[in-house]
Structures are given as C-alpha cells and as structure tokens.
C-alpha cells in the first residue's frame, strides 16, 4: 500500500527527473558528484528553498503571494543600514528583520483575510509599495555590509576541496537555519491543527469554516509567518553575499512559485507537501547551476530551462489527473 502510494505521488516523479538530470550532468562533465559541487549547489539552494516554505503554505491555502522578495529586501535593507553599528550581537539583526517582516506580513494578512481581496493583486501592491518605500524613504542603493554581519557571512561549517582541480567550496553556517526551518514547516503542516486548517481552507474555505476552523486566524498566521521568515531570509542573503543589495531578490518569486508547483503543490490550493516543494527547488537549483557544466551556450540556456520546467509540470499534472480519474472510478463503483 505504502509503496504504491509513493509510486503514485508527484514527488516521486520529480525526484526521478532531478536524479536523471544529475546523472546526465555527471556523465557529460564528470563534475556533478564532487564534494565541492554539492556544497555549491546547497549554498545556491538555501535562500530560494527557505522562501518555498512560506510560499507553499499560502499556495496550499488557495492563494498566491508575490510580495516575499520585497518584504525580505526592505527588512534586510532597513536592518543593515539604519541599525548598522547599533547591535553587536548578530542575532539582533535577524530578530529586528523578522519583526519588520512580521509587521509587513500582518498588513498583507489583514487586507487579504479581513477584506477578502485577491491575494495575488494585494501582494503585487504591497510588493511595489515595499520597493517604493525602500527607494523613496531610505534612498536605497548598494552598500557594503556592516562588520558584525560580515563576520557571520565569513563563518563556515566546513570546506570541501576537490582533490583533482584543487577548488575549494565553503558551506555557510546558515544552512543549519534552513534545515531547522524545514523541520518547523513540516511540523506545522502535518502535526498541528493549524496546519490541517491550512489544507482545509485551501480545499474549501466555507466547508473549513463550518467544520470549526478559524479561517481568519489561519490566514493571518500564514501571512505573518511568511513575512517573518522573509525578513530573516533577507538578512541571510545579505550575509551570504557580504553586501547589501536592495534589488537583488527581485524576480525570485517566480522561481519559488515554479518550484512549488513542480513539486506538486496545487496552485488552486488544498494539496502539497514540504518534501515536494524541496524537490521542486532542488530541480530548479540544479538546472540553473549546471547548464554551463553541460556546455550549453549562454544564448540557449533559457530555452533549456523552459523545456525542463514544462516537462516537470507536465509529469506532475499527468500524475494528478491519473489519480483523480482513479478516485472517480472508485467512487462510481461504490
């Protein structure tokens, strides 16, 4: 029964596609399964994967959020410039950014959950607002990173050196935060009533309300959670880059939404798993970091990326359709 369920899940097929792609890169370049390449990939994976968690919760609840890169950027920018030199403990920077992110997320939440406006449009607005405030009020421009966070950015868990090429890659400490966040997200979605409420709302908000879920509170929670995490991720990005770049995250929302959907999170809500979203992001990261290893010229890289995304989505869509048909047949038989 259990193996059957795995065989029929979208996650399984995305994992196979990702594995196949990795094998092709390995055969073509001989560089894929090397310690330093894996570390590079993990590092590149960290930031977008963390965004996936907040986004998938919102997708599961039946909405789409495109404001998280803006929330992350503005929280990061304010913390790294206004509070530069104020704190000596790096954790305080993260905490402040999380508070700013939380406040911005709460604004999203109130507009969406209370006034019931469409989330995509609302977050498009708040996104523009955040970037605008950053430009208008804070005069945003590229800045060097403050000393306290610079030191955090230089910290590494370990280094891996490739014995053949002599290339060294460092594993940033912040991957630990990513792992912790995944566990937290998995726990909320699967082991708490709140998490089940998110799925219920995405399935049918009215039915969920009648079943006793507090729709307003649940929606408020996911936007606040997403905003708060975005604030933290923004500062993490700055520390990893060792520089404060106000527009660096712009456009990441599309990659993140694509990864979630690839991983089987249903864009109309009610369905999706943490492991699926992670796998979707694994595929996206591997593609964007392996095309040069495959020897594909810059002119053709976008075409290639597009083809793989479409194949991935098709596989997951076909899988969903199959399952639905089976369910319909079963119900008809019963």
């Amino acid at each position: 029964m259990n193996t059957k369920r795995i065989l029929h899940s979208t996650e399984f097929y995305i994992a196979i596609i990702a594995a196949l792609f990795c094998m092709i890169v390995q055969i073509k370049s001989g560089q894929f399964f090397t310690g330093n390449n894996i570390v590079d990939l993990l590092r590149s994976f960290t930031i977008p994967a963390m965004f996936c968690l907040g986004e998938m919760m919102i997708l599961i609840s039946g909405n789409t959020d495109v404001s998280f890169p803006a929330i992350a950027s503005v929280s990061m920018y304010v913390v790294c410039t206004v509070f530069d030199g104020v704190f000596t403990n790096p954790l305080m920077f993260f905490l402040m950014a999380m508070l700013i992110g939380l406040a911005l997320g709460a604004i999203n939440g109130i507009i969406i959950a209370y006034f019931k406006f469409p989330a995509l449009i609302v977050t498009l607005g708040t996104s523009s607002l955040c970037f605008g405030i950053m430009q208008g009020v804070f005069n945003s421009k590229e800045e060097p990173l403050g000393e306290v966070l610079y030191r955090v950015g230089e910290m590494k868990l370990f280094s891996v050196t490739n014995p053949q090429s002599g290339l060294t890659s460092d594993m940033p400490v912040l991957v630990l935060a990513m792992a912790a966040l995944f566990v937290l997200g998995w726990f909320i979605l699967n082991k708490t009533m709140l998490g089940r409420g998110i799925y219920a709302i995405g399935g049918d908000a009215i039915a969920a309300e009648r079943a006793g879920f507090n729709v307003f509170a649940t929606q408020m929670f996911i936007y606040c959670f997403s905003g708060c995490m975005a604030g933290m991720i923004g500062v993490m990005r700055a520390t990893m880059m060792l520089a404060v770049h106000p527009n660096n995250l712009e456009g990441m929302e599309m990659t993140v939404i694509a990864a979630c959907v690839l991983g089987g999170v249903r864009i109309t809500g009610g369905k999706g798993t943490v492991i699926g979203a992670i796998l979707g992001m694994v595929l996206m990261t591997v593609i964007s970091n392996s095309l040069i290893l495959l020897g594909i010229s810059t002119q053709w890289q976008k075409v290639f990326t597009g083809i793989i995304i479409i194949i991935g989505t098709a596989v997951s869509a076909i899988q969903t359709k199959k399952n639905e048909k089976k369910l319909a047949v079963k119900m008809a038989a019963a």
Partner: peptide, 14 residues
C-alpha cells in the same frame, strides 16, 4: 552579484 558568483564558480569548474 550572487548569480555572477555562481556562474563564475561553474565556469571555473568546467
């Protein structure tokens, strides 16, 4: 600049 960093690494690997 993060993309530049990733691309440079990949070029040097390949």
């Amino acid at each position: 600049s993060e993309k530049a960093y990733e691309v440079a690494k990949e070029v040097l690997k390949k």
